[in-house]
Design a protein around this nucleic acid. Structure first.
Lengths: 380, 380
DNA sequence: ACCAAGAATTTGAACGATCAAACTTTGGGT
DNA sequence: ACCCAAAGTTTGATCGTTCAAATTCTTGGT
């Protein structure tokens, strides 16, 4: 090794830079490979003085563990797979994106990585599961937009592969099955808060525009509105039916539905909507027939809601992400915790959304400023 | 139910399933490790009959190469790193998301993966570069929202690490530097098309609401509008200045700017905007002062534009993604092509956007149908 | 029948890390 | 001084793949 002297004496600015390995660190620190490894992975079993020397050597060489080598040996990838939905369905698509962002940040805190993939249909997604699992590319999946009797969770349960869903299971899946961890945001509470707020704004007949389908989401949001309306305003089933409509999600649909409701003899004096798209349509409908001050509340707190000053129910996506990781990896750490049927703690989290109040529900109280929707004229 | 007792003794649905390796495939096919490897990586050097046997064995065992082992040996990760921007800036944030989606899909076609990361500031991002590079986690980076004299590209060039930017370089970087590959969408053309369309709708004084900053994007979009206005309508610099405003991106800003322009003595009879946010604000402003039919054109074709029926300039994000990969990996394949200063072909692509025409520029021509999107105050 | 040259295949080593077990040191208790 | 357990450290093997070199099999010309 006498040529090491030569090597250092000659400056070689950008030759093929070979990355340092544990071996190199060990040599510099005067310890063995394994001790270096221990400093990194089990610091508690290494003597303080030794640790210090190793840490110094690591810093000196700028050493970083080779991710693939580590993965090969430990048989874990420290990577989570997330499918990027094929159809970013309009305005609400950004919900997934914001969630993805929160997830990436939370994951980084635990030294976990997020790997994306796309697939066509559930079948394609399951193929992707299989590919990524077999290639040891990911340790777990995070599923979004789950459906009734979701075939994906069935497959994952069947193949005993770790996952967590954003959205509670429905169908044959048991809500309390410890093998099916899930995180969800309480739509009942969200719709209830929205309704409550509408009432606080002075509304006595709160209308509701919801989704056409029979998803859990659709049902519980409507139930939240119905429950609050019943409790506070004393409405019964028939009256509630008259005050609500179920349509396909979208701005034009929201517009049309709002017009229908607002032209009723007993028109609602506020509108709670199951999405910001619907609410945006509703706002425009209200404006178009001169009912500018009508309180309208949306759902999901998308960027559009912020942009147009629409009050909206906000889902705590960072908490969702945090909880998802907690269910997969425990309080901290990056090792999948294996589940058993006998697990005691509930393997799910139901989070509570918050209402973000904006101009769309404040105009009723202030003077009409002439520029209803996104007006920036402050009256002083 | 009845076999629950038996289940444990006989059936073992989920014993520890060991994944098959090349060795297993080789044994079944009656060949050696390396031959299996060759079938996968260099099919042309293996005899047809042997290939057939190996392929059969692979299918039979459901073999898939272990990604990490392969990466360790080949010293490449087949993974591209993308930073998820910390601030999903409102409506336009979805542009990045749509790009991300396109990129993920294109990458999948080449057996490449997308890995996400977040970082705070450019410094943080460069740290992340360093980490991901040293850990051999990624083979290249795709950068978005580049800025003038971007420190990130400087670092990457300095450390000789492959990357491509979505957005042409500006500053000390050379547009034609073969070491700095980039893809961009021609904003000049986009704004020009928008203006052209406005004129085709009958406008004779097309106004422009653009960005306040001095980014390439801001400059070229305005230039596109100015150029077309000069050519077709014969406006000079002073007149153009009077017809345009530069503001911060956002719906309220668009609203305010539009009001200012529309209240001028020589008010514009159409508005071209540098973003959908601005355009949305402009639409609302127009509606609020009774100029419902005013043609308004946005930029980026975000979901909101679709939702509210706003004509908008669409960036071909799938092409951008495809081009980005092409610059990194060549026509096909998943191996980084190394660049030299002497490269002949230009290491960049300038793509042309297309205008998507919607109701916001059609109302002028059709009869008021009673329920247009953003209000239906009749003017006559 | 022989040989050379190319085609096809096999073998040993390596990628960089961690695991499991073996080994060495330390610190009391007797 | 001795021994033992606990603490700390090292050694050999291994994860699954591909590289580089060695080996065997073909083929065709003489």
């Amino acid at each position: 090794m006498q040529d090491s002297a030569v090597q250092t004496s000659t400056l070689q600015p950008s030759t093929v830079r070979t990355l340092p390995t544990v071996e190199d660190v060990a040599r510099v620190a005067g310890v063995s490979r394994q001790t270096v490894s221990n400093v990194l992975n089990s610091p508690e079993i290494v003597k303080q003085t030794t640790t210090a020397r190793v840490v110094a050597a690591i810093a000196q060489l700028g050493y970083r563990p080779h991710a693939s080598a580590r993965r090969l040996r430990t048989r874990k990838s420290s990577t989570i797979g997330v499918r990027l939905d094929p159809m970013t369905n309009g305005i609400s698509g950004s919900l997934l994106d914001r969630f993805l962002h929160a997830l990436t940040e939370q994951a980084a805190d635990r030294d976990l990585r997020i790997m994306l993939f796309t697939a066509r249909g559930f079948g394609g997604e399951i193929d992707a599961f299989s590919r990524l699992r077999d290639g040891a590319d990911v340790d777990a999946f995070v599923l979004t937009s789950t459906v009734h009797n979701d075939p994906r969770t069935a497959w994952l349960l069947d193949h005993d592969f770790p996952f967590v869903t954003f959205g509670r299971p429905s169908g044959v899946d048991d809500l309390n099955d410890p093998l099916h961890p899930w995180v969800d945001v309480d739509g009942f509470s969200g719709a209830r808060q929205a309704t409550q707020h509408a009432i606080a704004c002075g509304a006595r007949r709160v209308g509701y525009i919801g989704f056409d389908d029979e998803s859990t989401t659709a049902l519980e949001r409507r139930a939240g509105w119905a429950s609050e309306s019943a409790d506070q305003l004393g409405f019964g089933g028939t009256e509630l039916d008259a005050l609500s409509l179920a349509v396909v999600d979208g701005v034009p649909q929201g517009n049309a539905a709002a017009l229908r409701l607002l032209r009723l003899p007993d028109a609602p004096d506020a509108l709670v909507c199951a999405s910001d798209s619907l609410a945006l349509g509703a706002m425009m409908a209200a404006a178009s027939i001169g009912r500018t001050g009508l309180p309208v509340i949306g759902y999901d707190n998308t960027p559009v809601a912020d942009a147009v000053g629409l009050s909206s129910v906000d889902q705590p996506l960072d908490l969702v992400a945090e909880s998802a990781l907690e269910l997969l990896f425990g309080e901290s750490g990056s090792t999948i915790i294996s589940r058993t049927h006998s697990a005691t703690d509930p393997m799910h989290r139901l989070l509570t959304p918050t209402l973000v109040v904006r101009q769309s529900t404040q105009l009723a109280r202030v003077e009409d400023s002439g520029s209803p929707v996104a007006g920036n004229h402050k009256e002083s």
